[in-house]
Design a protein around this nucleic acid. Sequence first.
DNA 1: CAGATCATTGCAAGCGCTTGCAATGGCTTT
DNA 2: AAAGCCATTGCAAGCGCTTGCAATGATCTG
Lengths: 337, 337
Amino acid sequence: MAPSMSDDRKIPRLDEVADRAGVSAATVSRFFNNPKMVAAATAERIREAVEATGYVPNLLAGGLASSRSRLVAALVPDIAQSIFNATVEAMVNELSVDGHIVMLGLTGIDNARMPDLISAALARRADAIIVTGLVNDPALRDLMRSRNVTVIETWGLPDDPIDVAVGFSHRAVGQDIARFLRGRGYRRPHLLTATGTRAMERRQGFVDDWTTAGGETPTEMTFESQTRFGHGRAAFRAIRELPTRPDVIVCSSDWLAQGVLVEAMAAGVRVPDELAVVGFGNLALAAEMRPTLTTVDIDGARIGREAVDVLRRRAAGKEIPDRHIDVGFRLIARESA
Amino acid sequence: MAPSMSDDRKIPRLDEVADRAGVSAATVSRFFNNPKMVAAATAERIREAVEATGYVPNLLAGGLASSRSRLVAALVPDIAQSIFNATVEAMVNELSVDGHIVMLGLTGIDNARMPDLISAALARRADAIIVTGLVNDPALRDLMRSRNVTVIETWGLPDDPIDVAVGFSHRAVGQDIARFLRGRGYRRPHLLTATGTRAMERRQGFVDDWTTAGGETPTEMTFESQTRFGHGRAAFRAIRELPTRPDVIVCSSDWLAQGVLVEAMAAGVRVPDELAVVGFGNLALAAEMRPTLTTVDIDGARIGREAVDVLRRRAAGKEIPDRHIDVGFRLIARESA
DNA sequence: CAGATCATTGCAAGCGCTTGCAATGGCTTT
DNA sequence: AAAGCCATTGCAAGCGCTTGCAATGATCTG
């Protein structure tokens, strides 16, 4: 009944468990951290003592002594309706198997809180820091490199990773989309791009491939903020005013694409005959709405798993031969293009 | 260039900063934890020393000594496309202002991993544990109550909270929907419900209100798993086979509702004239798709903020007078009903 | 001007665990 | 039967910080 703050019943400690089991604290410690070192009979007595006392190890103390925190920081821009959620989810699930916890840090779509969050992670002596946003500040990169911490950059493949990168080539995505649309005979693409670095890389990949192949420079619009439905809507209307109407709209996110689609349907524009649409992300909706959306699928969960795999290899003392781990992507052709 | 694991440059400690600033370690500690206690001139020297050494406090050691971890555990079923994300996002953002970090735990939709995650949180001596899933095991509830940790249950208002609850009455939601539909003249509701405890409470609220007001017992279907688009689709088709066709479908999630809607449109059924649909959650899509969805909006971010507010009040030594904090809900009438 | 008050600071004893090293005793091996 | 090996366990010295208590000097107070 009383609020839990007030009852300060004593919390059992390691040595009490040890006393009860008739062994030293060291043995109980080993029971938790290195079970194969303790004899079966002893282990059983310890197990009973733990049970009886309701002992829960103090990992703050343990971490201090061993300088292993069993804490991994996951730093993402946001989780509201983020494309990164599958990655975070996979990471959290994989790591909890190993007895690690994850600190969730939200850097903001502009990554403004990145420095503070990295500090917070280092202050807790995180075993690893996994970021999806970009860390541009050289001082920060150096700080992380100077610490005994694994750093994994995900969802992209920077030329010179801080440590290890798990992701795919955004440029290649753009190129693939260009190639695909060319193959389908489209002539006048219009690009709808968010101003983020990666969306811009995809855009550049598209433009380069398209023009190199003799296509005209695509018309385009960019958006400052995170792209949502509303932007897609507005964009569709703006596009209708264009002197030469595009025959396909290439969006930097499925949200954007979905907005365009909804507005196109409302305007009675036939998709893809009059106007085709391509998205990016393959959200749950993409395959469910009508028309179904042609988009690019990234296996976000796999990115999370691969990242954890790197951590495991490190923990096992193995070297990571290739600092770039490419998980690729898949262009999924559906009804909209 | 070398992987960061290998260069073990020495990490600066508190006393090195102290030496450099010509003060004792205690003073530097106070500089970080209780700045108003140190003289301005001294603070400035310390600041410089911190800067020069690149010192980052070791919060494992600090937490051990002070028995304050500045760690809050957030335990949610999942984050894939979860209705709880706004709550988690708000919490993380609010807490980082106070210098707290949040440990994200995914309990699974059946809450199977809840016990392990609570142990993990207690092992890190979390200052607070915030759960959205239900903690049914009495032993677990007692364990948490016996520890010096604030426990906040969210998204519901259990009769006897472990500590504090922030949420709303699911029963009342069901009742409100029943009242609303009656007001609009609907007669034959059909319920689509996930088997979760809370969805069931809403269902019960609906049924009780509906029948009490003289309505016939609604037809219904329940789903074992997490409800997605696909379930809504399948449900729609099944409903078409019913002997008496319902005039409104009440879904326990927007996903379900959206699936029904998509399938209804495809089948040429006019919404809401031939068939109305009500959802729950007010996802981003609800207002964007056509027809727009009548649903119930929960201010998830507010739940997160209120929870953090409770933590702050506790930290300030204030008592929490009411252990139930009701954030309410809003039924949003749109086109679909 | 003596005594009291206050703002700063340092001392040193922990906080609860981990782990290198050494000790113990039972088994093998020759 | 002596020597060597191995599995198990205990000892004790930290890990890096916080904080109650006491000391110091400065500023007030009457």
